[in-house]
């Protein structure tokens, strides 16, 4: 997919996020939108996957360690063809398979259940180690939040990955700088994030995580990096793509009402139209 196609797809993924969270009347739009370009790139360009065969053995694996941004993952999966896009509107509804946080037992394409922060990266390490032991060619991707890395287990996992030289593992930190209680550097700062991962023996790449040129370059570099895992510190904008949600901590875990929903969808329609003019 070229850059323009990816940008257009990212708008569709964002529409799915806004629609599903609006329909659920609950959920986490801010961090789903900040990472929407990363979800899009992973599922439409980077990963070796087959929506018709979600469990194929040699597939690349993805673990959404920041599981609360499930709407972003689900929207990418639906748009990629794992399940109908219409189903996104059942998010968090009683009886729906689209649980509030990723549920690998019921959602096609979800490689690991997650949601309790800090746990996903360890599972990703296990998948990467399994790949090494089996001499398999698949790669493992884990997306963590910048607030999430305040959890100690993340650093246990980072130590493990660095020590074991898991170069088939790529960790992406969605560095949108906001967590529930405020800016991460005011709550309990994990900065400098890059230097921390470097000291845990990761190859570290800082990028604008809402720019497909930089995203592509980073994932290419990660794939070419041997002998150590890669951490991509993706500097992103929380709520990206919806005017009133951008850089607003209040939209971490709140659903738009009907009026706000219309404004958000209008923002995204305009963004989509602008891309069609290109």
């Amino acid at each position: 997919m070229d850059k323009l196609a990816l940008e257009k797809m990212a708008v569709e993924v964002r529409k799915g996020i806004v629609s599903s969270v609006h329909s659920a009347k609950a959920g986490h739009p801010g961090g789903s939108l900040s990472a929407a370009d990363i979800f899009t790139y992973l599922y439409f360009e980077e990963m070796n996957i087959d929506p018709k065969n979600p469990k194929k053995e040699d597939r690349d694996r993805f673990v959404l360690s920041k599981g609360h941004t499930a709407p972003g993952l689900y929207s990418a999966l639906a748009n990629r063809g794992y399940f109908p896009v219409e189903d996104l509107l059942t998010l968090r509804h009683t009886g729906s398979y689209l649980q509030g946080h990723p549920d690998m037992k019921h959602i096609p394409g979800v490689d690991m259940s997650s949601g309790s922060l800090g746990q996903g990266l360890s599972a990703a390490c296990g998948m990467a180690l399994a790949g090494k032991m089996k001499d398999a060619s698949y790669r493992v991707y884990a997306l963590c939040g910048d607030g999430e890395i305040e959890e100690g287990q993340i650093w246990e996992a980072a130590m493990f990955a660095g020590f074991r030289k898991l170069d088939n593992l790529c960790v992406i930190i969605d560095n949108n700088n906001l967590q529930i209680d405020g800016p991460i550097d005011e709550v309990c700062s994990p900065y400098p994030i890059d230097k921390k991962f470097e000291s845990f023996n990761f190859h570290v790449i800082n990028i604008d995580g809402n720019d497909f040129d930089e995203i592509k370059k980073a994932f290419d570099e990660a794939r070419a990096t041997k002998g150590m895992p890669t951490a991509i510190i993706a500097h992103t904008v929380k709520g990206k793509g919806v005017s009133y949600m951008e850089n607003s901590v209040g939209w971490h875990g709140k659903a738009p009402n009907d009026e706000e929903y219309e404004i958000a969808m209008e923002d995204l329609r305009k963004a989509g139209e602008a891309l069609c003019q290109k």
Partner: peptide, 18 residues
């Protein structure tokens, strides 16, 4: 190493790979 939480998660990940 002395990191039981990570060990538990690593085991979970390995089990998904057979």
């Amino acid at each position: 190493g002395i990191a039981e939480a990570n060990m538990t998660g690593v085991a979970a990940g390995m089990s998904t790979c057979g």
